[in-house]
């Protein structure tokens, strides 16, 4: 069965691309053995984490065209769920990560039901509001989240009696999560569900008239994307060993958004490039750290002005019929 699926995937990707994908995977696998500098390795873990998070946003923004600009909320919910569960119960970290993903996904369902029936702008604004509300709730609900003090002492994850505490361990952990995410997303995008998502992005009315239950597919899409944001958050909780509301400010949302847009919406490779470039660049020019968010803002403006589909973009923006009608 597994071999069958694998064969299918390989035949679907063209040979040339496959070469690069294998090369990239090999380089990424060797990296932690070659690099000895712990700081560089730490940045490598963060880079993969941001690639995971921006890829999860890309599922929503890039494939279905729903502008979720409060993605940080689901990342925060994932991180806090993991921190709360793992400090109170003795559960395996894999289970905790899964639960965190589902909890984030559940919140997105509650947010999606009232907003996804309406046109995209309401959804965009509500997600922005939701991100702020999530942060405020974290700060105020002291009995659960310890408010401004954050939750320290997230236990070190263990598997088969091995304690996963070094940067190398976390590197492989996030590498596997990212690999699973991309593989799964690739399979979904090339299925009936993925085609429904893309058709909604291209023209929602046309897609509905072809018999696609657009509301259902939008909800599915949102839940899938936010599941991975929750997983990313749970990983962050383990990696940092500490969660606090300061890590989940709105700027973080805009950072994911910039990564997706700069890399290219609606392709799997786009957020990988965008996430990597926009995580590594600010580290290289660390003296410009204060200007980080300015760079993100300018990057978004420049991309939209000169290459709206992003560096590796796979979609074109066009005005659809329903838009020109009422203007």
């Amino acid at each position: 069965m597994a071999a069958n699926i694998f064969e299918k995937i390989i035949t679907n990707i063209n040979k040339n691309k496959l070469k690069y994908i294998f090369l990239l995977i090999i380089v990424l696998l060797i990296l932690p053995f070659v690099v000895e500098n712990q700081y560089v390795l730490h940045i490598a873990v963060l880079t993969l984490m941001y690639v995971l998070l921006s890829s999860s946003l890309n599922v929503i923004v890039g494939y279905t065209g729903q502008y979720n600009i409060g993605h940080v909320a689901f990342y925060a919910i994932g991180a806090y769920t993991a921190a709360i569960i793992s400090t109170r119960f003795n559960l395996n970290f894999i289970i905790v990560i899964l639960i965190s993903g589902f909890v984030a996904s559940l919140f997105s369902l509650m947010l999606g039901i009232p907003t996804l029936r309406l046109r995209g702008i309401f959804f965009a604004f509500t997600t922005l509001g939701f991100a702020e509300i999530t942060r405020l709730t974290i700060l105020n609900w002291r009995s659960l989240t310890r408010g401004p003090f954050g939750i320290p002492g997230v236990p070190i994850p263990q598997i088969f009696g091995m304690r996963l505490s070094t940067n190398t361990h976390f590197y492989f952990m996030i590498f596997i999560l990212l690999f699973l995410m991309l593989l799964m997303t690739y399979r979904i995008i090339n299925s009936r569900v993925g085609r429904a998502w893309i058709s909604i992005r291209e023209d929602e009315q046309a897609s509905a008239s072809m018999g696609v239950d657009t509301f259902k597919y939008k909800i599915m899409n949102l839940m899938y994307g936010t599941f991975w944001a929750g997983v990313g958050g749970a990983f962050f909780a383990y990696f940092a060993g500490y969660v606090s509301a300061d890590s989940f400010i709105l700027d973080e949302s805009f950072r994911f958004f910039a990564m997706v847009l700069v890399g290219g919406t609606g392709t799997l490779a786009g957020p990988i490039l965008g996430g990597a470039v926009l995580t590594i660049l600010p580290q290289v020019f660390r003296s410009f750290a204060r200007y980080q968010m300015i760079i993100y803002g300018v990057a978004i403006l420049l991309i939209i002005h000169y290459k709206p589909e992003g560096l590796l973009g796979g979609r074109t923006f066009k005005r659809d019929l329903s838009e020109s009608e009422d203007n």
Partner: peptide, 11 residues
């Protein structure tokens, strides 16, 4: 663009 401009102006 308004999202991008907002980020830029705020920072």
């Amino acid at each position: 663009t308004t999202v991008g401009f907002g980020i830029f102006l705020r920072s």
